[in-house]
């Protein structure tokens, strides 16, 4: 079960207050009429489905009802960061892989982990 930090409410709340809304950062084609069937189908239906770091949209459904983004690992389910709408993630798949590589240096790891808004699994 997730314990999620809502960046608008400024506190950790239980998973049940939230709804996952799928992949984040999908922008509607600027000129929908001009898109081909391929592009339109891709926009509607095709999603990244990574086994690893994933950026996703969540809504604080029974809280402030605002949408925000979470970067989460889809195997360990660890929440790596939470950020507001319009912001860009600071942790990406490449960044995460590099960080895991350097994990032997414990100090670095602890320092960088402290920076994340921690969403531990209860």
């Amino acid at each position: 079960m997730f314990y999620i930090f809502c960046p608008y409410c400024g506190e950790h709340r239980e998973e049940e207050e939230f709804h996952p809304k799928g992949q984040a950062h999908i922008s509607r084609p600027a000129d929908p009429e001009a898109t081909s069937d391929e592009e339109w189908g891709d926009y509607l239906f095709f999603r990244d489905n990574p086994r690893g770091v994933h950026h996703e949209l969540w809504v604080h459904a029974v809280g402030c009802r605002k949408f925000f983004n979470i970067t989460r690992h889809t195997v360990s389910y660890e929440i790596l960061e939470v950020y507001k709408m319009g912001e860009q993630p600071s942790i990406t798949a490449e960044h995460y892989a590099a960080q895991q590589g350097a994990a032997s240096a414990d100090k670095e790891r602890n320092a960088s982990q402290a920076k994340h808004q921690e969403g531990v699994r209860a």
Binding site: M1, P20, T74, V75
Partner: peptide, 13 residues
């Protein structure tokens, strides 16, 4: 469970 996951486990709710 509504979120994407490859962990072969889900949430208690």
């Amino acid at each position: 469970d509504g979120y994407n996951g490859y962990g072969q486990r889900g949430s208690y709710p």
